[in-house]
Design a protein around this nucleic acid. Structure first.
Lengths: 209, 209
DNA sequence: TTCATGATGTGACAAATGTCATATTCTGAG
DNA sequence: CTCAGAATATGACATTTGTCACATCATGAA
């Protein structure tokens, strides 16, 4: 299990490395101390998991994670935080991170890494209990790209393979409007054409909720 | 686990029902005796798994399976045969069936069904041993649509979101040739445009090998 | 009311796409 | 060698797509 660790407290990141490296399965490829580091190291080493602090001096972990996931939707990013902060958790989920665990939960870090490595999402028990107000299901990943609901509807139609004319019929819009929407959407997602949009849709598993 | 059973030997299908129904998890929705039955019953009941014989009088099981999978790529079809016939196995795999087991392996039928229900593919041990000449990896599901290797390469490029010009660069073909290929491919798969092709690609999980 | 804003629409345009008829080239079977 | 059939290419063409500038309209805040 190849890891990259990022924490702006060098003591923490170093300790983590020491502790985690004790396990023969674990290999720490690199250590960083800022969001910027996270991006560089991620794309340099392509670790199985990027274990990262959220609150950091040099650019926060959430923005960095968002950018990494924009380029590589399959990146496994596991956040390690000191606090149970609802906004943080919400955002972490929204950008598609694989989990949010607490530094205090010392013993659970390694098992959590394993879980993520095997494709699970993992959240500290405290979180699930403490925040029943959050409906995890409702957190829609597309909000991360500032798509409106209507825009997302359009995306879905494109991802079904409909033409602009067909979409205009399905959504009761003029064909011209559909095109305008498309232009906006492609702009927001930094894509070139409807085919890339469909590809993006399935690669990011937007078809699964 | 909801099943539809199809075997042209009514004794076999009836016995199977009796035996499988003994397990409380199993529910046999219907029994058929021909390939035609298989299609009708599949789309009438939408079972979790269609357990079907290959060699049957009223239209063979492979053709029926192919047609079902053309309409519903996610159909779980498990073939139950008396013989270890390489051609059968090859075809079964090629059309995207979930497995090929032997009637003799009596005790393994139920476990195999469970495996398929949980998303696995399953093949009788005899098969994997007896036929080392077959490289399972090489059996490509797209052969079912008579796509050539080159055509499939093109499909992959489209499914990555490349334009015709980009594809022509990647595959060392002229842009015109790429278009011609595209026309053929769309014709073969009965699709309209490249976006539908990309959608088809991911829906049929061609991205997973 | 006035104004800003967002949702929707139109027209014009260039580029990309898909179709078709028709070459050209290469290669393998006979 | 010769021929048939792939594979590859070209040009013409109609359509669709994506972009842009600019309307129109409703609605809610000031």
């Amino acid at each position: 299990m190849k890891l990259v660790l990022v924490d702006d407290d060098k003591l923490v990141s170093a300790s983590l490395k020491t502790i985690l490296s004790a396990d023969p399965e674990v290999e720490v490829l690199a250590i960083g101390n800022s969001g910027k580091d996270a991006q560089e190291l991620y794309f340099k080493h392509h670790p199985d998991i990027l274990l990262m602090d959220i609150r950091m001096d040099g650019g926060n972990g959430l923005d960095a994670g968002k950018q990494i996931l924009a380029k590589d939707p399959n990146a496994n990013i596991l956040y390690l935080s000191t606090f149970v902060d609802e906004d943080y958790i919400r955002t972490a989920l929204a950008i598609g991170a694989k989990g949010y665990i607490l530094k205090q939960d010392f013993d659970s870090i390694l098992p959590s890494l394993r879980a993520v490595a095997s494709g699970q999402k993992v959240f500290a028990g405290e979180i699930v209990e403490k925040i029943p107000t959050m409906s995890l299901e409702e957190i829609v990943p597309y909000q991360q790209f500032d798509l409106t609901d209507k825009e997302f509807e359009l995306v879905q139609k494109v991802a079904e393979g409909l033409s602009n004319k067909e979409i205009s019929g399905a959504l009761y819009l003029s064909e011209g409007t559909v095109r305008n929407y498309l232009t906006i959407i492609l702009e927001k997602l930094d894509l070139r054409d409807r085919t890339q949009l469909a590809v993006f849709y399935y690669k990011n598993q937007w078809d699964k909720l």
